[in-house]
């Protein structure tokens, strides 16, 4: 992994490259550090694990949020849209 290649991820993360020198060195070191894991053989997984027993469908909207309060500086309908939680199943 080259530093110029790594700096592309600033763009992907919507973070400007100001002061990128130290961040890039840190990230390079961390990637070296975690690379111990990527070399060990592991069995392939069959499913992604979530520790809870079952997934349940979520409610659409928080009970206390009545859509009238505009605390996020959004119109009520827009706020409602953002507070809708996607169905998991």
């Amino acid at each position: 992994m080259r530093k110029d290649e790594l700096s592309y991820f600033f763009h992907l993360s919507n973070i400007s490259e100001e002061g990128k020198g130290k961040l890039l060195s840190d990230i390079e070191n961390i990637l070296k550090w975690v690379s111990g894991l990527i070399t060990i053989p592991l069995p392939e997984i069959e499913h992604f694990y979530l520790p809870s027993i079952e997934l349940k469908r979520r409610n659409d909207k928080p009970e206390e949020f009545d859509g009238k309060e505009d605390l996020l500086n959004l119109g009520p309908s827009l706020a409602n849209r953002y507070f809708k939680v996607p169905k998991v199943l």
Binding site: F9, L12, I15, I27, V34, I45, F48
Partner: peptide, 27 residues
């Protein structure tokens, strides 16, 4: 910022299997 950049990297095409894939397999 450091963690967002690292996370974006390990999820990116080309590195996903080596890093994130390995991480969840280890889990």
């Amino acid at each position: 910022k450091r963690r967002i950049l690292l996370g974006t990297f390990v999820l990116s095409s080309g590195y996903y299997d080596d890093y994130y894939g390995k991480g969840i397999s280890y889990r």
